[in-house]
Simulated scan of single mutants.
Amino acid sequence: MSKTIKGLIIGISVFLVIVLITVSILMFPLKGKTYDYDYWYRDKPYDINDTIVLEKEENKDFKILIITDLQFNDALDLCGKADNVYETVDTLVTKQKPDLIVITGDLVWAKFTKFSVIKAINKIDSYGIPWAPINGNHDGEGNVDLAWIANKYEEAENCLFKQGPDNIGGIGNYIINIRENDKIVQSLIMMDTHASRYYDKDDENMHYDFIFDSQIEWYKWAINGINEYNNSKTDSMIFMHIPIPEFKTAYDLWQQEGGAEGENFGIKGEEECPSYINTGMFNAIKEFDSTKYVFAGHDHLNNYSVMYEGVRLTYAMKTGDRCNQTPGQNGGTLITMGDKITVEHIYVEN
């Protein structure tokens, strides 16, 4: 056998080994660790130290930037196809200078997402700004599970993510309190809306999941605890991925009856895909009269914001062009907390 042929065989063998190792790394599913020490019960005393507290400077606006449904994946990211999405985020962060970044789900979407998760976390963490993600219905579909992603979030220096109580459903039910002069001025309730499920053994298709009763009870407990800490009723916001059914009700009512000038804004580009059943989350919101804003992602072509029974229901603006985007509808959603709270979409050309 000539040296040339022998060298060729060795080269091909090395190449095949590298390919095999790469494929194995990509395809081998990775599971993370969930924690069983954070057990919630209704009579558990509310402790502000169990929550995340961010300090707001007196007489200075506090800005929250929502980005959503970025939907990275390994195949496209390794080919450099994520650049425009990252450019959108760069533009938003540079121009808006937020105090907090919230991701309302679907950071990734595909069968292979390990490298995309790591790259996205490193990128967002590099801004040096506190950031708080929640899970979307696609985040756990890849070759890394939600617990693995949660572990990576928790390792990031500036990420505020907490897995939350392990007995109320989901990974990532947690609270961020905004405090000014030792008083909580706004509580941000982060809620996991899960993914999809078969509702009946005869179902041919899966339907979107819902907020569990245990999560609603946890929400009520949290609002009561925050009010007791403040010795007064405290305002709050809820961030979720899959919208509650009242989003559709609110939009339809707006179209039928209109609203005060400038009160509602945004567009509906597709039919809403809320939780398949209504478990009463909005009833709890109304009962406790604390939450005045609910933000969701999920439906990429919708970005409407509507007042409904005293609560503003807002679809955050989709960030990036991955998977179903209306041309021109790219950017993020900015919440500004000052003398009053304003909500606006920030458009970025792509």
Rank of each mutant, 00 (worst) to 15 (best):
Pro165Asn: 08
Phe161Lys: 10
Ile18Tyr: 12
Val17Tyr: 14
Pro45Tyr: 10
Ala250Ser: 08
Asp77Gln: 10
Val108Cys: 10
Ile18Lys: 08
Glu287Thr: 07
Val14Gly: 02
Lys63Cys: 03
Glu271Trp: 07
Gly136Ser: 09
Pro243Val: 09
Val185Leu: 10
Ile103Lys: 00
Lys3Pro: 00
Gly269Val: 02
Ile21Tyr: 13
Asp321Gly: 04
Asp203Val: 04
Thr68Ala: 11
Val102Cys: 13
Glu257Pro: 01
Ser232Pro: 00
Asp106Phe: 11
Lys111Phe: 04
Thr51Ile: 01
Gly80Cys: 01
Asp321Val: 10
Gly105Thr: 10
Glu180Met: 15
Ile25Phe: 14
Met206Thr: 15
Asn205Ile: 10
Glu204Cys: 07
Asp61Val: 07
Val185Gly: 13
Ile52Phe: 00
Val144Phe: 03
Tyr41Arg: 13
Tyr127Val: 01
Met190Phe: 09
Asn227Ala: 06
Ser232Phe: 00
Gly105Ala: 11
Met190Leu: 10
Gly80Ser: 03
Ile175Cys: 00
Val311Gln: 11
Ile176Leu: 12
Ile189Tyr: 13
Val93Met: 11
Gly140Pro: 00
Asn143Phe: 08
Leu334Phe: 00
Phe282Cys: 01
Gly297Leu: 06
Val185Tyr: 09
Ile168Phe: 13
Pro133Leu: 04
Asp125Pro: 01
Asn181Tyr: 11
Gly258His: 12
Gly266Tyr: 06
Asp125Lys: 01
Gln96Met: 12
Ile103Asn: 05
Asn205Glu: 15
His241Thr: 04
Thr314Pro: 03
Gln71Gly: 05
Leu107Phe: 06
Met317Ala: 02
Phe112Pro: 01
Gly297Ser: 09
Ser13Met: 14
Phe15Val: 07
Ile134Asp: 03
Pro45Val: 13
Ile267Cys: 00
Gln255Thr: 07
Ile189Pro: 03
Ile223Asn: 04
Val89Pro: 04
His345Gly: 05
Asp47Ser: 08
Gly297Thr: 08
Asp36Gly: 05
Asp166Gln: 10
Pro130Trp: 05
Pro274Val: 06
Tyr347Ser: 03
Asp38Arg: 15
Ile285Glu: 03
Ile168Asn: 13
Val102Tyr: 07
Ile335Asn: 00
Tyr153Asp: 11
Tyr127Asp: 03
Lys292Asp: 13
Asn227Ile: 07
Ala156Thr: 09
Asn303Met: 08
Pro133His: 03
Ile171Ser: 11
Met337Asp: 08
Ser187Lys: 09
Leu301Glu: 15
Cys79Thr: 07
Glu217Trp: 05
Phe161Pro: 04
Val85Ile: 15
Ser13Trp: 06
Asp139Thr: 06
Asn264Ser: 03
Leu26Lys: 09
Gly128Ala: 01
Ile223Gly: 05
Glu57Ser: 06
Glu261Gln: 13
Asn137Arg: 08
